[in-house]
């Protein structure tokens, strides 16, 4: 009985969409282990765990949060380019409240999250109620948003001292960074909401064919709006932990380029940019691949500025691998090569 299920599990794994992302991650880990046999070591010190795996998970937390939201937005056939700017806004809102007022930590967090939800509401309204293309609608906030964050910060980097707030970014719980717990929490809640209710199915239906979904009585506009609210929420939380990590809000640099990381993670997870089928676990696997890549570049001594280049190439490569035309060309070439 047991062997039978494990057999079918292995079979299913080979066929499943997990196989390629998993293989990529494993390949990178093996590469790192060859460079440094202790790459995966974890040790316990001063009440917390240390080591590359923990470090990778901790550093990937902001992108992981963004990727959760981005997965759902992309599944509805949209995109959110404003997540980096929303991170800056949420960080600025929290930092200024911490510096200028005496309000409780809870209020600060609520205000930060609320600012993200407001941004999501604006994006969602532009996309689903005004019918503006998602790229343009969110591009508006992508650039305006940083201006707003700058305005809140009056052009400065606003720093603060608040143990409770900082704990969110650099503290630990049961020896594991709080950021990892937060990602886990958001992941579990969103997974429950999307897969234990019909919401996930509705999102996929809208993403595959929003017109047919309307004929089914699904309110496609509401579904899209919810997706942008979710990215707003996730971006705000990512902004909060980023601000907490550096004890300050740097409107120019926080979350810079992270929108591509999040999109790349979703694409690495095998989701189509045109919308439809989605899987948050797969996107998170994509996040791990990206962060392991970052760490690999750092550990192997390559200049970190190569990051952008490698990621840009990775996006194009994955998109090409997803494209039917490219696959046909490749198999055609392979066929020719075998014949000659």
């Amino acid at each position: 009985m047991n062997t039978e299920t494990s057999h079918s599990f292995a079979e299913r794994l080979l066929k499943s969409r997990y196989i390629w992302p998993l293989a990529a991650l494993l390949l990178m880990l093996i590469f790192n282990l060859l460079l440094d046999a202790s790459f995966l070591d974890i040790h316990f010190d001063n009440g917390r765990f240390y080591g590359n795996p923990i470090d990778i998970l901790h550093r990937s937390a902001p992108v992981a949060l963004l990727a959760i939201g981005m997965t759902v937005v992309i599944a509805t056939g949209g995109i959110d380019l404003s997540v980096g700017a929303v991170m800056a806004i949420a960080g600025a809102v929290c930092a200024n409240l911490l510096v200028a007022t005496d309000v409780s930590l809870f209020t600060v967090l609520v205000a930060g999250i609320a600012s993200g939800l407001l941004c999501g509401l604006i994006n969602g309204a532009l996309v689903s109620y005004m019918g503006i293309q998602p790229i343009i609608a969110t591009l508006l906030l992508m650039v305006t948003g940083r201006g707003i964050a700058q305005l809140l910060n009056d052009g400065q980097i606003v720093t603060f001292q608040h143990a409770g707030f900082s704990w969110l970014g650099s503290g630990t719980l049961l020896g594991i960074p709080v950021t990892i717990w937060l990602v886990l929490l958001v992941f579990i809640i969103s997974q429950l909401m999307l897969r234990r209710t019909a919401l996930g199915l509705f999102v996929e239906a809208v993403g595959c064919n929003s017109s047919a979904s309307r004929y089914l009585g699904i309110n496609d506009r509401t579904v899209k709006l919810m997706a942008y609210l979710l990215t707003g929420f996730c971006a705000a939380l990512a902004g909060i932990i980023s601000a907490a990590d550096i004890n300050g809000s740097d409107a120019n640099n926080v979350g810079l380029w992270l929108e591509l990381d999040a999109i790349l993670a979703v694409v690495l997870g095998g989701a189509a940019l045109s919308g439809g089928r989605f899987s948050i676990p797969l996107s998170l696997l994509g996040v791990l691949i990206i962060q392991t890549l970052n760490t690999t570049i750092m550990v192997s001594g390559m200049p970190s500025k190569l990051n952008l280049l490698i990621k840009a190439l990775a996006v194009v490569l994955v998109l090409l691998l997803q494209s039917d035309i490219f696959r046909k060309q490749i198999s055609g070439l392979a066929g020719k090569w075998r014949h000659s």
Binding site: T197, A198, L199, L201, F202, E204, A205, C208, N209, S211, A212, S213, R214, Y215, L216, G217, I218, G276, R277
Partner: peptide, 24 residues
């Protein structure tokens, strides 16, 4: 354009209307 939800399975395409009626 208005009927099938192409990439979804037959199972999901059949169940969708009932699911919408039941509520999410």
């Amino acid at each position: 354009t208005d009927g099938i939800i192409g990439p979804l399975s037959i199972r999901e395409n059949i169940a969708l209307a009932l699911q919408v009626q039941a509520g999410w």
